[in-house]
């Protein structure tokens, strides 16, 4: 794999240092030469672009990583990457190919997981590498003197980064649970003890999101007080063909790639940000064919109209979609 040529809207950064912060998590300090990097808000992520040249077929991975708070003033970003078992996301590239001094191409910060600043209290549930977005929450929450409490679950043989940094910031408001020491978090009592007006944030595996949501349901919390990070790898599906009305291109979409990835591989100019069906950036007009809508952006009415589709997650119900591209 290699890094990718930079477009106007993208930034080139230099990997200033790489640190092992947990057995399977590496932290990358990214710096820009000569230009200043854009500021960012608590909960922001950047997308790192990586090009694989395995098996002739060039494929570009675009992985979103949360920005940790910058410890060294304004002009650097920190991200932390967990080595995943399947290389789909490009974490193998980040862990094995990227060296200090290398250049990476990234997209400027965007935020899909901002804190709800009017909450009376913030309770953060982090699972493993899901600690990352909270690393930018905490300094800003402390600056605003917000009331905050953290429940951090990990396997110390694999994850569990930043415990010292966290305990310095949070003191006894930090609760750690190491599964490899058989210490588990009992979510229901934690939730039941919260005062009215508390907002809860979850970043971690699907099972953690579900556990918190079901406790919240049982306790009668309003859905608007539960926030979770919405990155998810697009689920696989049947292969289909995308026909591009304006350019006449025919693009095969494989079962393990998204429509967006297939369009990008065919060098179609298309915007994206969250790549998880949330932000609306990739919306594309649909001329013919029935989309299997899997996004959270379009309303039910809009989905039923079948006149646009979010290619980052959605697919075809049958074997073809005709797009106005």
């Amino acid at each position: 794999m290699s890094s990718v040529n930079t477009k106007k809207t993208e930034l080139t950064v230099r990997v200033a240092s790489i640190k092992q912060v947990a057995p399977a998590i590496k932290e990358f300090l990214l710096e820009a030469d000569n230009v200043s990097l854009p500021a960012y808000s608590a909960g922001s992520h950047v997308v790192v672009l990586m090009e694989s040249d395995e098996q002739e077929s060039k494929k570009i991975f675009r992985n979103p990583y949360s920005l940790l708070s910058d410890s060294d003033g304004e002009n650097s970003y920190r991200i932390a990457v967990r080595l995943q078992d399947s290389s789909r996301g490009g974490s193998v590239f980040m862990h094995q190919s990227v060296k200090e001094g290398d250049r990476l191409t990234i997209k400027p910060p965007a935020n899909l997981f901002a804190p709800y600043w009017r909450a009376k209290k913030h309770v953060l549930f982090a699972g493993g590498v899901g600690i990352t977005p909270f690393m930018s929450y905490l300094p800003e929450m402390l600056r605003r003197s917000a009331e905050v409490e953290m429940h951090y679950m990990f396997h110390s043989n694999v994850t569990g980064a930043y415990q010292d940094e966290l305990s310095q910031m949070l003191g006894d408001k930090l609760h750690c649970y190491d599964s490899d020491q058989s210490v588990r978090c009992r979510i229901y009592p934690v939730m039941a003890a919260q005062p009215i007006g508390t907002h809860v944030y979850i970043c971690g595996p699907e099972s953690l999101v579900k556990a918190v949501q079901s406790a919240a349901d049982e306790l009668g919390w309003p859905a608007s007080a539960i926030h979770y990070e919405a990155f998810s790898a697009p689920a696989p599906g049947k292969p289909f063909v995308a026909e591009l009305k304006r350019t006449g291109k025919r693009i095969e979409v494989g079962s393990d790639e998204s429509l967006l990835e297939a369009l990008e591989a065919a060098e179609v100019d298309i915007q994206s940000s969250c790549r998880g069906g949330v932000c609306g950036r990739c919306m594309t007009p649909l001329i013919d064919g029935q989309a299997d809508h899997r996004d959270q952006f379009l309303s039910d009415d809009e989905k039923a109209r079948q006149d646009c589709v979010m290619p980052c997650v959605s697919r075809a119900q049958n074997d073809k979609l005709v797009l106005d591209l």
């Binding site: 960012y40 400027p108 965007a110 932000c279 609306g280």
Partner: peptide, 10 residues
């Protein structure tokens, strides 16, 4: 509203 909420930095 949807358009505005999706406006990114820059």
């Amino acid at each position: 509203l949807k358009f505005l909420m999706a406006i990114p930095q820059g």
